[in-house]
C-alpha cells in the first residue's frame, strides 16, 4: 500500500507492469479455461454390477421339507452341493434378505430370523471373512431390522447389518429396457464377493407373488414407486440384473393372503420348506405353486423365462433334488 508517495524507479515500474500482466494472464487464462467448458453439466457414466454366480453351478435346486425348521437350511444347501461349493475362504458375503416392513417375524412379511442366522453361520463355517446383511426397506430401515427380529439374529450369528444411507446409492445401468439407468444401492454390491438372496415366500397384491426376483427390488432407490406401472417387466429385469451366488427361499411359513404386508395370524400358514437354488425362475415357479397360485398369474416368471433367465419347470432341472425327512 501507499505506493503513491514513494519514488518509483523505472525498474520498480516495470516490475509492477509485469506483475499486473501476470495477474491479467492468470485471470484471462482462468476465464478461458472455464469458458464454455461442459456447456451442459457432464454426467458420469453409470456404474455396473459384477456377476456373483459361481461357474458350473447353474441349474441347481434342492427342496428341503421338514416340520423341524432348524436343520432345513443346512439340508437344502447340502442338497445343492454344500456351502463350500459357493463360498470360498476369505470371501466377503452379502445377504439380501426381505426386510421390507417393520413388522414382527410371525406376520410373514419379512424373512425368518432363524433362516438368516443359519445362513450366516454356514458362511462363516465355509471360511467367509465377513458376512453383511442389507435391504432398502419401505419402512424405516432400523425399525424394520429391529421389529422383524432380524437384527438380533444377525448379531447373534456374527453378521453385520448395512443400513443404507443416501451416499450408498449411485447411478447404475440396471437394464437396457424399462429400468435403464437407476439409483441403486451400490456400496454393498460393490463391496461383496458373493451374494446370497434370502427372500421369504409371500403373496403380493400387484405382482401375485413376491419371491426371489422381486427381492432385488430392495437394491433399488430413487422414485421406485413408478415401477408399479409395469411391475412384471421390472421384476424380470431385476432378475437379469442381479446374478446371485445362491438363492435361498424361506418358505418355513407362507404369507398366503393380504401380501406383501400381511398383518394377522390368519394370513400365515406353515410352509416347513426351504429351497436352495441357482435358478431364480425355478425358485419363483416353485414358490408360486407353494403359495397356491397359478403360475400364469405371475407374469414376470414367464417374461424371465422367455428372456432365458431360467426354467419354470423346476422338476425337469438336471440339478433338481428333494430332501425330505
Amino acid at each position: 500500500m501507499d505506493q503513491e508517495n514513494k519514488k518509483v524507479s523505472r525498474r520498480d515500474f516495470l516490475k509492477q507492469v509485469l506483475k499486473a500482466s501476470a495477474a491479467g494472464v492468470v485471470t484471462l487464462g482462468t476465464g478461458l479455461f472455464f469458458w464454455n467448458r461442459n456447456p451442459v453439466p457432464h454426467k458420469t457414466p453409470p456404474l455396473t454390477i459384477q456377476r456373483f454366480d459361481v461357474p458350473e453351478t447353474a441349474g441347481l435346486m434342492a427342496v428341503a421339507r421338514d416340520a423341524n425348521v432348524s436343520t432345513l437350511v443346512r439340508r437344502a444347501i447340502d442338497g445343492v452341493g454344500g456351502i463350500s461349493r459357493f463360498i470360498e475362504k476369505g470371501d466377503k458375503v452379502l445377504l439380501k434378505v426381505n426386510c421390507a416392513f417393520a413388522r414382527p417375524a410371525w406376520m410373514g412379511a419379512t424373512t425368518s430370523p432363524e433362516v438368516v442366522g443359519e445362513v450366516i453361520r454356514l458362511c462363516y463355517q465355509a471360511g467367509a471373512s465377513s458376512v453383511r446383511v442389507t435391504d432398502f426397506p419401505i419402512n424405516d430401515p432400523d425399525s424394520c431390522f429391529t421389529k422383524s427380529g432380524l437384527k438380533k439374529a444377525i448379531k447373534d450369528a456374527g453378521g453385520e447389518i448395512i443400513l443404507p444411507t443416501p451416499a450408498d446409492f449411485r447411478r447404475v445401468q440396471v437394464s437396457q429396457g424399462v429400468i435403464g439407468v437407476w439409483e441403486t444401492l451400490h456400496t454393498p454390491l460393490g463391496w461383496c464377493d458373493k451374494l446370497i438372496g434370502i427372500p421369504t415366500a409371500k403373496t403380493h397384491n400387484l405382482c401375485g407373488a413376491s419371491l426371489s426376483m422381486k427381492n432385488w427390488y430392495g437394491f433399488i432407490g430413487g422414485s421406485r414407486s413408478r415401477f408399479h406401472q409395469d411391475i412384471h417387466h421390472v421384476v424380470a429385469e431385476l432378475g437379469a440384473f442381479i446374478t446371485p451366488t445362491l438363492v435361498i427361499l424361506d418358505a418355513t411359513r407362507l404369507l398366503v393372503r393380504n401380501g406383501p404386508t400381511g398383518g394377522s395370524a390368519g394370513d400365515v400358514t406353515p410352509g416347513n420348506t426351504v429351497v436352495a437354488s441357482t435358478d431364480q425362475v425355478a425358485v419363483d415357479s416353485f414358490g408360486t405353486e407353494l403359495l397356491g397360485l397359478n403360475i400364469d398369474t405371475v407374469e414376470y416368471i414367464r417374461i424371465a423365462e422367455q428372456n432365458g433367465l431360467g426354467q419354470s419347470d423346476y422338476k425337469s432341472l438336471v440339478g433338481y433334488r428333494e430332501v425330505s425327512a
Binding site: A20, A23, G24, V25, T27, L28, T30, G31, L32, F34, W35, N36, R37, N38, P39, P41
Partner: peptide, 24 residues
C-alpha cells in the same frame, strides 16, 4: 458460476476480460 459450476458460459468471458483490464 466458475466456482459453482466450473463453467463460464458463452459471452461471460467479457466480464473476465474486464476483470483483467481492471488490474491495469
Amino acid at each position: 458460476t466458475i466456482i459453482s459450476q466450473h463453467n463460464l458460459a458463452g459471452g461471460m468471458i467479457i466480464g473476465i476480460v474486464i476483470l483483467a483490464m481492471t488490474l491495469f
